[in-house]
């Protein structure tokens, strides 16, 4: 077991970064934590500070104002860190990619480990993405 696998062996704590999004992905992420899906069963917890997190969830297209802040958050995070881009906007910029304030999809700014496409992805898809990621690393 390598160091990275060792780090992700137990409960994954998640920090959520909502970029310039339409809110749908944010709501679906919170939906994952509420009774129907309840990801907290598996120890997946939304935390208030990036310094406590194992996973950085990024959704929404990233505009010029968000870009530096996302980079700063990534730099502040303890490594190893898993970065997950959620939704069409997180993966490619989606419908907002042609916008005048668009500053590149998430993977142009920070390295991304997993993409969960969909507009918005269903909570089931988000869970499947996290499970795949955890399986790959753990």
């Amino acid at each position: 077991m390598g160091f990275k696998e060792f780090c992700f062996r137990k409960s994954l704590w998640v920090f959520h970064f909502g970029g310039a999004s339409c809110n749908n992905c944010d709501i679906e992420i919170i939906d994952c934590l509420t009774p129907r899906h309840d990801l907290e069963r598996f120890g997946i917890l939304l935390v208030g500070s990036i310094r406590h997190a194992d996973v950085l969830l990024v959704n929404g297209s990233i505009n010029r104002r968000d870009k530096d802040r996302l980079l700063e958050l990534y730099n502040q995070a303890p490594k190893p860190l898993l970065v997950v881009a959620i939704g069409a906007c997180g993966c490619t910029g989606g419908i907002f990619a042609e916008g005048n304030t668009f500053a590149g999809p998430v993977d142009k700014i920070i390295p991304v480990d997993a993409y969960i496409p969909g507009c918005p992805p269903k909570p089931e898809a988000i869970i499947a993405g996290i499970v795949k990621l955890a399986g790959k690393k753990g």
Binding site: G19, A20, S21, C22, N24, G60, S61, N63, R65, D66, R69, G94, I95, F96, E98, G99, N100, T101, F102, C119
Partner: peptide, 25 residues
């Protein structure tokens, strides 16, 4: 401003049928 996506401008580049998908978002 953290959430600005330039929707009004984008809307001018889309057809009436496409704008619905944009304003929905």
């Amino acid at each position: 401003g953290y959430n600005h996506r330039g929707i009004e401008k984008l809307s001018e580049s889309k057809t009436y049928d496409q704008v619905f998908f944009l304003v929905e978002r």
